[in-house]
Amino acid sequence: MVLNIAERHKLILKKLEENGFVEVTDLSKEFDVSLVTIRKDLKALEEKKLLFRSHGRAIPSNPYTTENHVNVKEKLQTKEKIRIASAAGLILEPNDSIIIASGTSVIEFARHLKPVEGLTVLTASLNTALILSENPNIDVIQLGGIVRRSSSSVIGPISEKMLAEFTFTKLFLGVDGIDLDYGLTTTNSMEASLNKEMIKAAHKIIVLADSSKFGRKGFGRICGLHEVDQIITDSGIDEKTKNRLFELGIDVTIA
């Protein structure tokens, strides 16, 4: 039976919801129409903001994240970030020397951090440094460098040079995107460069990311998932993603 445009669109969206993606070639064969027809279908659905076209396929939404000011990002997924922050605090051990990177998830971590004996924190985040400096039981080191106003954090060669002088037990890293194939990303290339140096300086890499970050990509690539030891996220993560992370040897904590 030949399907009309409305019927094809309905089935395309149904398959997209079930599988997480659709392929142009598969749809062409299944509906017995040309590749050109399917591309037109996907273009029409994309114009209605119902999907996002990418490399011969379509996915539910645009995976590329845009840069927002820290004040805006703080208002997103706040309950999830608080739970993630509390779970991250349980990882701390006496005499830990840790890096807290930048981003709203790690700022929330700083707010809920209960200091252990002999804790030293180095951070790129100005807000994190201010929060932790109020606690006399934490030694705080603020990285120097270029102030990135949108995230209230520092970046650049001065920051990277400072990092080379230290070694740390743990890195608590916030990201803008986690793609299972591409890895961790952020919206700023200089921040990505600094994050790479943080990874080199730390023994254990812990990512704090709410579930909205999965399937997303930022402009600057930080690293592949093979470099990550643990991800702390919320219950919104889907089973397929969680199982894939387990297969990659990553410890997944659901807060």
Rank of each mutant, 00 (worst) to 15 (best):
Q142L: 11
R111P: 05
I82A: 13
T128Y: 13
T169I: 00
E74V: 11
H226T: 03
G249Y: 11
E46G: 02
L3Y: 12
K10N: 14
G224P: 00
A192K: 02
E239M: 15
S193Q: 06
I231Y: 08
R216F: 02
K15P: 01
L13F: 05
D41R: 06
E23P: 03
D251Q: 15
V147S: 08
I231G: 09
H69R: 12
K204R: 12
D41E: 13
I98G: 02
N95G: 04
I91R: 11
E47C: 08
R53Q: 10
G144K: 08
H69A: 10
A129W: 10
I98R: 02
E247N: 15
I107F: 06
T104S: 05
D210E: 12
E67Y: 02
R57W: 00
L130D: 15
R53I: 12
I84G: 14
D26G: 07
I91M: 08
G20S: 13
K29I: 10
K15A: 11
I107A: 02
D229N: 15
T65E: 15
F166P: 07
L50M: 10
S153Q: 03
S193K: 10
F21G: 00
A255N: 07
A101L: 05
S153F: 01
E80C: 03
K43C: 05
I158P: 06
G236M: 09
I222E: 07
H112F: 13
H9F: 02
P94I: 06
N95M: 01
N127A: 15
I131K: 10
E239H: 14
G144A: 08
L16V: 07
G220Q: 12
I254V: 04
V70H: 02
H69N: 13
L3E: 10
E134F: 00
V106Y: 05
A110Y: 04
V207M: 04
H226Y: 06
I38H: 13
L119A: 05
P63L: 07
S61Y: 07
T241N: 14
E160G: 00
I91V: 09
M198A: 11
N19Q: 12
E165L: 07
G156T: 07
K217M: 14
M198H: 08
H112C: 03
P63A: 09
I158M: 10
S153T: 08
N4I: 09
V22G: 00
H203L: 13
K161I: 03
D41V: 11
H55D: 06
E197S: 10
K75T: 15
E160S: 11
I59C: 04
L76C: 01
